[in-house]
Simulated scan of single mutants.
Amino acid sequence: MASATPLSRTALTFYTLVALIAFAANSVFCRLALSNEQAVPLIDPSSFTAIRLASGALMLALLMRLTSTKNRTTLDKSSAQPHGSYLAAVLLFVYAIGFSYAYVLLDTATGALVLFAAVQMSMMLMSYIQGHRLNRLEILGALVAFAGFGYLVWPSVGVTNGELSISGMVLMAISGCAWGGYTLLGKGTAKPLFATGYNFIRTIPIVLLMLALVWLLSGLMPVDAMQSTPARLAFNVSAQGVLLAILSGALASGVGYALWYRALSGLSANHAAVLQLLVPVIAAVGGVIFVGEQLSVHLIICASIILFGIALVISAKTTYKL
């Protein structure tokens, strides 16, 4: 979201810090709502995803309306066409649904780490496919990050159920790759707030189709299979679960993205990339404080290796905009 005047150092620091906390809060909200350690989870993953995307769309629509009013512009049908795309909306949905189902299986810190690393690596891979050739430092950083991932996956620790850890990591990696593709599609957009807002709105038909499919499957499958992890195909909605989904969509996603785009007007691509290294760290702290999770030495070592590798790639040469 462009700004007519430069941000002050204080405002830039505030917007950046709040946005990063909001990104990490998504992991905490999702984990609180979907934890399989509870006898009855607060909400099922599909309902969480639907409410998150719908509330995010409403919040972003409100922010777009306020921005348009301030700038004396309109949000008529014709003005909506250039913003975002249906492909971006599909990737946004894949990110959100993968994120929700992965957090049935992963703890907060592990999920945030896998998500963030998958985003960065997928963007780096797509940049390579588009013609950018990695220099030695970038290659070294990529190898270090992949080594950290191998060390993370090998003993299958840092998750709520060792047998399901790989499934959770694969789901979160798919989610991260979708977000990486979504980010690259929006690269260089003149109005990122509007593009994101319309992309959220475009996910609503996909959400309705998903809910219809889950309803159909829940009617065909045995009760035991519906309730089993990781299927969780039965609808299960509580007031607390709905509230967490709304907080994730409207605040952590809607307001968080808006503040991040505002902060980007005063950040270089390098600074933005490096600052996002803090998101898994903040999420891990949030998991300890609000979810009662424990951080293992193994996970701390893995996170350090992976983030160090990504930092090497970023510091070598930024070839994509976050």
Rank of each mutant, 00 (worst) to 15 (best):
G292S: 03
Q240F: 05
S218L: 02
P192W: 10
G84M: 08
T5E: 14
V237G: 03
G180M: 09
V90K: 00
S3K: 07
V40E: 14
L322P: 00
S165M: 13
G181V: 07
V104G: 08
W179T: 06
I204H: 02
A147L: 14
L105Y: 07
F194G: 00
A24I: 08
W179G: 04
F308Y: 12
T183I: 09
Y257T: 14
N26V: 05
R262I: 08
S165N: 11
T73V: 11
F93L: 14
V291L: 07
Y86C: 01
V242N: 02
P155H: 05
L140W: 11
F29K: 01
A142W: 10
I204R: 03
T160R: 15
V214Y: 13
Y257K: 05
L251M: 13
G286F: 11
V40I: 13
M226L: 11
K187E: 15
F48M: 11
P205Y: 06
A39V: 12
G287I: 09
L185Y: 08
C302P: 02
A303Y: 00
Y103F: 15
S100G: 03
A80M: 15
A33K: 04
N71S: 13
L137A: 13
L312S: 05
T16M: 08
L7D: 07
L75F: 07
I43N: 07
A109T: 05
A225Y: 05
A231V: 11
V90S: 11
Y261L: 12
A142R: 00
A212P: 01
A269S: 15
I306T: 11
A263T: 09
V104W: 02
L53F: 06
T229S: 12
L20P: 03
I97C: 02
I97M: 04
R9F: 03
A2F: 05
P6Y: 11
L209R: 01
L87A: 12
L244E: 02
T5W: 05
V279I: 15
T203A: 09
R9V: 09
Q81W: 05
H132N: 12
L32D: 01
L275R: 03
P280I: 05
I305T: 13
Y320H: 13
K70H: 12
V242F: 08
L312T: 06
F146D: 00
E37L: 14
P6N: 10
I129H: 04
G219W: 08
A311M: 12
N270Q: 14
A234Q: 13
S78G: 14
